[in-house]
């Protein structure tokens, strides 16, 4: 995995874990790889992985079982909140960017609709190729 060295690595590891969970690569109840194994897979420091996991455990997205390791939560409400949070974060970033270009809310909605329709046609076209 390639990290952006301007952004704290522990933060990017958290994003990586969210990604694994939301895309279903790590199903609810899945046991995570050992800390050192995760560090090797991501080519990062063990301490940084530990910090990221500690925060995910505090947020109850991961459940730490003594002597057994860390597991993805099976609590559907927590997972739904997480999924929603990730969508909100990304929408927030796009919204801020477009507002910074002096677009009105209505212009943003129109631009977004046009973009999605155009993108949908493109993807369909690519798919048929």
């Amino acid at each position: 995995m390639q990290f952006d060295d301007k952004v704290p690595i522990y933060y990017q590891i958290k994003q990586y874990v969210y990604q694994q969970i939301i895309t279903g690569k790590w199903q609810p109840g899945t046991q995570l790889p050992a800390v050192r194994q995760l560090a090797v897979e991501l080519t990062v420091n063990v301490n940084t992985v530990q910090r990221a996991l500690r925060e995910l455990i505090a947020a109850q997205i991961l459940i730490s079982k003594r002597g057994k390791g860390n597991f993805v939560t099976t609590d559907q409400t927590t997972l739904a909140t997480l999924a929603d949070q990730l969508v909100q974060d990304r929408l927030g970033a796009v919204y801020d960017d477009l507002r910074a270009l002096n677009l009105t809310d209505q212009q943003i909605i129109t631009a977004m609709q046009t973009y999605i329709e155009k993108r949908g046609r493109q993807d369909e076209h690519d798919f048929n190729d």
């Binding site: 990290f3 060295d5 690595i9 050192r36 560090a39 090797v40 991501l42 080519t43 990062v44 420091n45 063990v46 301490n47 940084t48």
Partner: peptide, 28 residues
């Protein structure tokens, strides 16, 4: 990867370099 795997938990490792970008993700 061998450093990440085999560095003992309580030990400290100092690694010298004049170009840091390639090892930055593993440094505390």
């Amino acid at each position: 990867n061998s450093i990440i795997k085999w560095l003992p938990t309580d030990a400290t490792l100092v690694i010298s370099d004049h170009y840091v970008a390639e090892i930055a993700p593993i440094l505390d």
